[in-house]
Structure formats: structure tokens, C-alpha cells
């Protein structure tokens, strides 16, 4: 059984919001109908988005990490939002595990949003139906779109390719490998929702240099006839040799 999902690599996400607006752009003219905005040019503009990028700070100065954190529906394998829906508008597709809302059935009771611990659902204030990430279901299967682009809009957009897309039930998929090899984890595991989307943690690149690597026989200072020490000493040597020399100071070895 297929379970499509996003895997988000926090190690490279720079918080650029490309995934946020490309999602809005794709979906506002997509099967979801439009995604409305309230007060678009006035106080407290607010609108429906399927994906948000948040920022967290970890630690205290100077040991601070800034973590950019994109969040959309996690397409839980055991989605608490689905059974609570009184109309059946919320459902999980068997064939690919995508959790969707049927906007024609939804009565806008918001109960599913209450049942989602992740705050991944947003009601469209104009249409008064519940909306959420569709994993771009109207894009990923659309034969009219070139195959390479047949991925969620946010994935195609992401400049750091921090967003991987694929089947997490296929052990050989890029996403499964990433989860396995780079410590992919789920959000709020305590609720047993088994989110399909996973996150890859930060990793630290390091350069290890120890003191005895510094000095070497082919040091350029040897060419210039200097011994590593203090810069003042290097210069002083030159100074000492300066007068009345017209000959090089120590050179030519």
C-alpha cells in the first residue's frame, strides 16, 4: 500500500517561504477552488494557506540555533481528523494515503480541525469549508504536466530541495532512505497519529584541525627563510637585516 508524504529537511531549510506562496498559487486556481484572503490590503490581513513556515530559536546566546520549520498536513496514517468528521467530507485515500477534504460535502463544523493536534487544517473564511494540504493531488497525477514537474508545487519550488516527496511505504524510495539514513522523525509521536510526513534533523558539518597539522616542512615560511613564531619576529628578522643590506635577508635557500 502506498503512502505518499513529504519529508522536510530542517538541515537545509532556510525559511524562505517559497513553499508557502507556491502552494497558495497552485491551489488557489486548483481543484480546491480559490483560497480566499480577508483584509488583503488592510488591518490584520489573513487568508487560507495550506502550508506555513515558522521560526523557532533553540538555546541561548551565543549557542543559538535558528530553526525554520515548514508545516502542512502530515497525512497521518491514523488520522484523528477523519473519523470525527460527521459528513465523511474528510477522508483518507486508500490508494495513496492522501488525506483529503471533499469541499462539496463539508459543512464547516470545524470538528476535524479540533481533532488535528498539528493545526494543519484551516477553514476558508469565505467558502466556509475546511481546507488543507492536498499533497497537490491535482498535480502529481496530471498527465498534462511534464513528468519531472509532477510533484507537489512546494517541492518543485523549494530552492534548497529541503522538501522530498515520495512513498514512505516503499523502502527503496528516496523518502524512505532519507528517513532511515538521516534520522527522520515524526511530530508529536505521543498521540499515535503516525504522521506520514517526516522531518530530518539538523546535522553539523565540522572541520577537525589539530595543532600538529599546522607546521609542516614545506611551510612557505621556510621558502621565505622565516620560522613560524610571532609575526613581530618575522618582521624583526627583516628589520635587523635591513641596514645596510642591499642583500636579501636570509633569502635564496
Amino acid at each position: 500500500m502506498t503512502q505518499l508524504a513529504l519529508v522536510i529537511d530542517l538541515n537545509v531549510c532556510v525559511g524562505c517561504h517559497a513553499c508557502v506562496t507556491s502552494c497558495k498559487e497552485w491551489n488557489t486556481s486548483g481543484v480546491a477552488g480559490f483560497l480566499s484572503d480577508e483584509n488583503p490590503y488592510d488591518k490584520d490581513p489573513t487568508g487560507t494557506f495550506f502550508n506555513r513556515v515558522q521560526t523557532y530559536e533553540v538555546g541561548e546566546f551565543p549557542c543559538t540555533e535558528t530553526v525554520h520549520f515548514p508545516k502542512s498536513c502530515l497525512h497521518c496514517e491514523d488520522p484523528p481528523c477523519v473519523p470525527v468528521c460527521p459528513t465523511g467530507a474528510s477522508y483518507k485515500r486508500k490508494e495513496d494515503g492522501i488525506v483529503l477534504v471533499d469541499y462539496d460535502k463539508c459543512i464547516g463544523c470545524k470538528y476535524c480541525a479540533w481533532a488535528c493536534p498539528y493545526g494543519a487544517r484551516e477553514i476558508d473564511e469565505k467558502q466556509q469549508v475546511m481546507k488543507k494540504c492536498t499533497l497537490c493531488v491535482d498535480r502529481i497525477y496530471d498527465q498534462a504536466i511534464p513528468e519531472a514537474q509532477r510533484k507537489p508545487a512546494c517541492v518543485v519550488a523549494c530552492p534548497t530541495s529541503a522538501r522530498l516527496f515520495g512513498d514512505i511505504h516503499d523502502a527503496d524510495s528516496e523518502v524512505s532512505r532519507a528517513i532511515r539514513e538521516r534520522g527522520g522523525y515524526a511530530l508529536m509521536p505521543e498521540w499515535g497519529t503516525e504522521p506520514a510526513n517526516h522531518y530530518l534533523p539538523r546535522r553539523k558539518g565540522t572541520v577537525a584541525v589539530d595543532a600538529d597539522q599546522v607546521n609542516r616542512i614545506d611551510s612557505p615560511l621556510n621558502v621565505d627563510g622565516r620560522i613560524p613564531g610571532t609575526l613581530a619576529a618575522l618582521i624583526a628578522e627583516a628589520q635587523a637585516a635591513a641596514d645596510p643590506a642591499s642583500a636579501p635577508a636570509g633569502g635564496g635557500r
Binding site: T46, T48, R52, Y56, E57, E125
Partner: peptide
Amino acid sequence: VQQKSQGAMGGSF
């Protein structure tokens, strides 16, 4: 861990 931004300033659902 502290949040600094939730990605929308004018509020959301």
C-alpha cells in the same frame, strides 16, 4: 525552544 514567528502576522484560522 521558543517560537519567534508563526509564518503569518495578521492571524490565521
